[in-house]
């Protein structure tokens, strides 16, 4: 298990360096290392690198690649958390309405006359973040998460109902949006174009914090495999742990959605892949999901920016057939 995690971490690092160099202006991996070493740590290496290459790496590609890593890790980890919490293999990070809330928030922000500095600082991202949190708060409230009275099926149903309601509201806003329709549509497809250092930092800090804290709750989430009653008998305070895990997974998801829009399938598929490799214990699934999600989104985004389509389209193109293949294997003997 530890070996799998270390190997995949090494793979992620290699792919990241390759991806930074890859693009219209190709930069050799060693030069990429030299540029990063020089710019971030002041190392006296790589004397013959042009200012243009440095600016491409440091201002455009590095923040974008780090964003792909952060968003992929956040989505896959919270997907794994929601699947464990709700004991449902079909749960994904958006199961409590995060995606619809974020989309509605972003759509409203596109319509508001905010310009200039607020826009630069990420008005849309902030609105998406608030929308995501608001929808989960609503589901939390109605389904009574953490009250001890909640039923998992009803949490899923309430999540679905709230998401449908918000989706209807989103349709209305899109109808009324006129010229902004394309921008809203772009957000719905998900993408990492135009990620800047400040926006990356604003999302990456809560994502890192939430995923690390979530990983620390792995023991409780492992006990959830046996259901509420079973977890109680293993010494877990079920209500408290469920509240904490939902809050952390929501924070990670909302931050990821704010930065990258609605990127689908990463949070659903990657945890299942991780389980294939290391079994169902969340303590093993979390780190591998985080790395796998980062790797998948990084690869998908590299393809996306090469052929010029939103990354969400690529993840759906890879993810949907892959899910079908997993289900096919399930029929052939392997069960999710």
């Amino acid at each position: 298990m530890r070996r799998t995690t270390l190997l995949s971490l090494a793979a992620l690092a290699l792919v990241a360096i390759g991806a930074i160099g890859f693009g219209v202006a190709n930069i050799a991996p060693l030069d990429v290392l030299a540029i990063i070493g020089k710019s971030l740590f002041g190392l006296p290496i790589g004397g013959e690198i042009s200012a243009g290459s440095t600016s491409i790496v440091m201002e455009i590609r590095l923040p974008r690649i780090l964003a792909a890593i952060a968003v992929g890790a956040a989505l896959a980890t919270s997907g794994a958390a929601f699947q464990s919490l709700l004991r449902n293999p079909l749960a994904d990070p958006y199961v409590l309405g995060t995606s619809s809330g974020a989309a509605l928030g972003a759509a409203i922000a596109f319509l508001l006359p905010i310009t200039g500095i607020a826009w630069e600082l990420g008005g849309v991202q902030l609105a998406a973040f608030v929308g995501a949190l608001a929808s989960v708060a609503l589901v939390w409230r109605i389904a009574g998460i953490g009250s001890g009275e909640e039923r998992i099926a009803s949490v899923l149903l309430v999540g679905y109902a709230v998401a449908s309601l918000l989706a209807a509201a989103l349709s209305l806003v899109m109808l009324a949006s006129g010229a902004n329709l394309r921008a809203i549509f772009g957000f719905l497809l998900g993408g990492l174009d135009g990620v800047t250092w400040p926006r990356l930092a604003a999302a990456a800090v809560p994502i890192t914090l939430a995923t690390l804290l979530l990983a620390r709750r792995g023991r409780a989430l492992a006990a959830f495999l046996l259901g509420d009653e079973g977890a109680t008998h293993l010494g877990i305070d079920v209500r408290r742990e469920r509240r904490i895990a939902v809050a952390l997974a929501t924070l990670a998801t909302a931050s990821a959605v704010a930065l990258a829009g609605l990127v689908g399938f990463v949070g659903l598929v990657v945890p299942h892949l991780a389980r294939l490799a290391v079994g169902s214990d969340p303590r093993a699934v979390f780190p591998l999901s985080a790395i796998g999600g980062a790797l998948l989104l990084l690869l998908a985004d590299t393809v996306a920016r090469t052929i010029g389509v939103p990354v969400g389209v690529i993840t759906a193109l890879i993810g949907a057939p892959f899910l079908l293949w997993l289900l096919h294997r399930a029929r052939a003997g392997y069960a999710l």
Binding site: R87, R216, R219, A222, A223, G230, G235, L336
Partner: peptide
């Protein structure tokens, strides 16, 4: 121990039984 253990994901017997060690564990490691 309940009579009906229903698991949401494929779980090996030794992985299931290892869950019984949770009350003795500390920290986030498996």
């Amino acid at each position: 121990v309940s009579s009906d253990i229903a698991l949401p994901f494929a779980t090996r017997v030794d992985e299931l039984v290892a869950l019984g060690r949770i009350p003795h564990g500390r920290g986030p490691a498996g």
